[in-house]
Amino acid sequence: MGPYILRRVLATIPVMGVVAVIVFLMLRLSPGDPAAILAGDQATMADIAAIRERLGLDQPLLHQFVVWVGELLTGDLGKSIYLNRPVTGLILERVEPTLALSISTMIFAILFAVPMGVVAAWRAGSWVDQTIMGLSVLAFSVPVFLIGYGLVIGFALRLDLLPVQGFVSLWDNPVGFARHLVLPTMTLGLVYMALLARITRATMLDVLNEDFIRTARAKGLAEPRVLILHALKNASVPIVTTIGLGIALLIGGVVVTESVFAIPGIGRLTIEAVLQRDYPVIQGVILAVAGVYVLVNLAIDLTYSALDPRIRF
């Protein structure tokens, strides 16, 4: 296992290198000039040229790339063009809201989706199955922002139970933290839950038709035991894979959800940076997200052997 982990970790280095090159080139070759945006609507051409020079954007592309990679190798992601602050610090400031939203969404989705998928498979073809799958299709089809607005109208404006927007740190006010997370979690979690419920159902249906399930039932095992210990455990590898792949979906969803609920997380930071062409921030965020994604995939791969002893690395 040890050499395998080391190999996988080392393999992330070229992956991150390729990501770095692609991100750098895509940003520089796409239209938009941070100097013009930074200078403002009333700026003169001389103002814009002066800013471009100060930011080093007038230098050849190769020179800019070498400078950036040089900084990167020392662990420096650069400084935000607009805020004039280190990108690493900006990302760290925004980690808590995004991490909190992602974790609560995962927990919410897994807690509801897996039992729903199991029940739907167990009662395949019945009204229960059809209802669960119908709702899943609906949740998966409705845009995230629409779900968000609907929940805000229902829970915040009509029932006056939860706040409309914002984020409170767990360390400042745990109850406020939870209150501000409920609606965003439900908004983002519904989509993720729908995906997971459908995958769980499909995988469980396959497993429930296996001989060993018939044997378990013939032995007289209670149905919950058959479903959870025998069927679900054997269906868990594809489910865990979907959970892992779902993190990419989650990253996209976080961007929208954070905007709808005015949560100052990584998603919002990314949008703002893209709209303003804040190159160092965009590059830093994408590299960080790519790194997290690679590590999550590694973690998912490692859980396979725990779930299925036949898998060995």
Partner: peptide, 18 residues
Amino acid sequence: WLYIPDNNTALAALNAGE
């Protein structure tokens, strides 16, 4: 000063007294 980029959310926050 709160920066609420989504106008619908800002309107809802005003309606709710936030």
